[in-house]
Amino acid sequence: MSHTAHIRSHRKPRRSASTIAMRAGVAGGVLGTLAVAASGAANAAEPVTQTFEMPTLTGDLVAQIAQSADATQQAAADYQLRAERDAAAANAAKQAKADLAEAKQKAEAARKKAAEAARKAAAERASRDSARDTLSTSASGSTATQASTSTATGSAAAVIAFVKAQIGDAYVSGGTGPNSWDCSGLVQAAFKQVGIDLPRVSQDQSVAGTQVSLSNLQPGDILYWGSAGSAYHVAVYVGDGMFVGAQNPSTGVVMKPLSYDPPSGAVRML
Score class of each variant (00 low, 15 high):
111 R>C: 09
195 G>I: 03
60 D>V: 12
117 A>F: 03
160 I>G: 04
6 H>N: 15
243 F>E: 05
188 Q>V: 03
143 T>Q: 09
26 V>A: 09
110 A>N: 13
84 E>A: 12
125 R>N: 12
236 V>L: 09
265 G>I: 08
67 Q>P: 09
89 A>N: 11
257 P>H: 07
161 A>F: 07
10 H>S: 12
6 H>C: 10
80 Q>F: 03
121 A>C: 09
249 P>D: 01
105 Q>I: 07
195 G>V: 03
66 A>G: 15
62 V>Y: 08
262 P>D: 01
214 L>Q: 01
150 S>A: 08
261 D>Q: 10
269 M>H: 09
23 R>L: 15
235 A>F: 06
193 Q>G: 06
122 A>V: 11
250 S>M: 04
215 S>C: 02
56 T>I: 11
226 G>T: 06
93 A>H: 05
240 D>L: 06
87 A>I: 10
79 Y>R: 01
156 A>Y: 02
163 V>L: 02
88 A>I: 05
197 D>A: 10
225 W>S: 06
254 V>T: 14
31 L>F: 04
241 G>D: 01
70 D>T: 13
175 G>T: 07
201 V>T: 14
63 A>H: 14
24 A>Y: 06
69 A>Y: 09
198 L>V: 01
85 R>W: 12
247 Q>I: 12
258 L>P: 00
108 E>N: 14
89 A>G: 10
63 A>Q: 15
82 R>W: 07
267 V>H: 05
190 A>S: 07
26 V>Q: 00
25 G>D: 08
163 V>I: 04
232 Y>C: 02
